[in-house]
């Protein structure tokens, strides 16, 4: 969006996260990550599997405590979840299987104490927005993975947060649906002016939707580079066939390719199947 103000909504300063595994090893998932997200901005995180994207999102949402460094929301230190301001779409969507779809969508408003009728209306509106109005009374187990993810998006939107943290919300979808939903999401967000941090593995999706794309390195996760996509928002479908789009996408591909290759070879040699160990580079 052209209208991004300069005031950062979310800031991460030198955030480091070291997990202690059950066997007593330490896994450094994030290494001194610093990032500012401005109000109204759409920022994508992209990087090899296991590089700490979900971890960063959890920390930004106050759902996990970093080992060191600071995160702040509107200048205030984040110490726990702030459901009125920050909405979350989880990588594994975690709908509650004992609740119907509509009551999953309204659950946040229920926790907030909103009356039954009002939250139902609100939930129904958001469920229609993701195209699943017809499934209001189904149970999560009766929906496909991609549909459950859309329900999780509706659930987050129902809370009407200023900031949405989305962890691969279209991960389980085919390319076509993904594109359509991406355009749809762009449209919804344009209207609401929300700030988004968005994890994805799709280069096209990242370029198409974002103001900035943050490329992360293989574990320990660091920020390798930040690409700016200058194209004004709302983006038109024509953008995805333009030369600037292709250039950006290719640039992203090169950046990422090195990292994914490094990460994959490290994993394979760790598992004892690594061949020539990347000497060919």
């Amino acid at each position: 969006m052209a209208e991004t103000t300069t005031a950062p909504a979310l800031t991460a300063t030198e955030v480091t996260m070291a997990y202690r595994t059950r066997r007593g090893h330490t896994v450094v998932a994030l290494d001194r990550v610093s990032l500012d997200v401005r109000r109204g901005e759409f920022v994508s995180l992209i990087g090899p599997s296991g590089c700490g994207k979900s971890t960063l999102l959890y920390i930004l949402g106050g759902l996990r405590r970093q080992t060191s460094g600071e995160v702040a929301l509107d200048g205030q230190r984040i110490t726990g979840p702030t459901p009125r301001k920050v909405g979350f779409v989880f990588q594994d969507y975690t709908l509650f299987p004992w609740r119907t779809i509509i009551s999953n969508v309204e659950v946040g408003l229920e926790f907030r104490g909103v009356g039954r009728k009002e939250r139902r209306e609100h939930a129904a509106y958001n469920l229609d927005l993701v195209g699943l109005g017809a499934f209001a009374n189904a149970y999560p187990g009766e929906l496909s993975g991609g549909m459950q993810q859309r329900v999780a998006i509706a659930r987050a939107l129902s809370m009407d947060p200023e900031i949405l943290l989305m962890d691969e919300p279209f991960g389980a979808l085919d390319e076509q649906t993904r594109t359509v939903l991406g355009e749809e999401l762009a449209r919804i967000l344009e209207k609401t002016g929300k700030t988004i941090v968005f994890v994805t593995h799709s280069l096209s999706e990242a370029v198409f939707l974002s103001d900035r794309v943050v490329v992360m390195s293989a574990r320990p996760g660091r920020i390798k580079e930040i690409l700016t996509v200058a194209e004004p928002r709302p983006r038109q479908p024509a953008f995805s066939t333009s030369q600037s789009f292709t250039d950006l996408r290719n640039g992203l591909f090169d950046l990422l390719h090195e990292e994914v290759r490094a990460a994959t070879l490290a994993e394979m040699s760790g598992a004892g199947i690594g061949g020539d160990g990347g000497r060919r580079g």
């Binding site: 979350f88 975690t94 946040g108």
Partner: peptide, 11 residues
Amino acid sequence: RYLTAAAALGA
């Protein structure tokens, strides 16, 4: 993850 989701939803 159910408990994490509940926390994120403000329970």
